Simulated assay, not measured.
Amino acid sequence: MPSHRGKLSLTETNRRFYERLWSEAQLVEPQRFNTWPLVSELAARARRMLEVAPGLRPRLPLDRAQFVDISRAAMTRFRSRGAAASVGIIHALPFADGAFDFVCSFDIVEHVDDDETAFAELARVAAPGAALLLSVPLHASAWTPFDDFVGHRRRYEPNDLADKLARHGFAIERSAVFGMQPKSSRLLDLGMWFLTHQRERAMWWYNRVFMPLGLRMQKPLQWKQGFHDEPGIDTTLLICRKQG
Score class of each variant (00 low, 15 high):
241 R>N: 07
214 G>T: 11
217 M>C: 13
218 Q>N: 02
236 T>M: 06
231 P>C: 11
226 G>D: 12
239 I>P: 00
236 T>L: 07
228 H>P: 04
242 K>L: 07
238 L>Y: 05
217 M>I: 05
219 K>A: 09
235 T>A: 15
214 G>E: 13
235 T>Y: 13
225 Q>A: 13
220 P>D: 09
212 P>S: 09
233 I>H: 02
225 Q>H: 11
224 K>Y: 11
231 P>Y: 06
217 M>N: 12
222 Q>D: 15
241 R>A: 09
227 F>G: 00
213 L>R: 11
230 E>Y: 03
223 W>M: 13
215 L>G: 03
233 I>T: 05
221 L>Q: 00
223 W>E: 11
233 I>N: 00
213 L>Y: 10
228 H>F: 15
214 G>V: 05
215 L>Y: 02
228 H>Q: 13
232 G>E: 08
216 R>F: 05
220 P>L: 07
235 T>W: 06
241 R>E: 07
231 P>A: 09
223 W>P: 03
211 M>I: 08
224 K>L: 11
241 R>C: 03
233 I>C: 00
219 K>V: 05
238 L>P: 00
228 H>T: 13
237 L>Q: 01
222 Q>A: 15
208 R>L: 04
219 K>F: 00
227 F>E: 03
208 R>Q: 08
218 Q>D: 03
207 N>G: 12
237 L>R: 01
216 R>Q: 13
238 L>D: 03
210 F>R: 14
219 K>H: 06
227 F>L: 15
210 F>N: 13
226 G>F: 08
220 P>R: 04
213 L>T: 10
238 L>E: 06
229 D>H: 13
221 L>A: 02
209 V>D: 00
208 R>N: 13
209 V>R: 02
218 Q>C: 00
212 P>E: 08
218 Q>S: 00
208 R>P: 00
241 R>L: 14
239 I>S: 11
231 P>E: 10
218 Q>K: 02
215 L>D: 01
224 K>D: 12
213 L>H: 10
224 K>M: 11
223 W>A: 06
236 T>K: 04
236 T>C: 11
236 T>D: 01
214 G>P: 06
237 L>A: 10
225 Q>R: 14
238 L>R: 04
213 L>N: 03
217 M>W: 12
235 T>E: 15
220 P>G: 06
228 H>C: 14
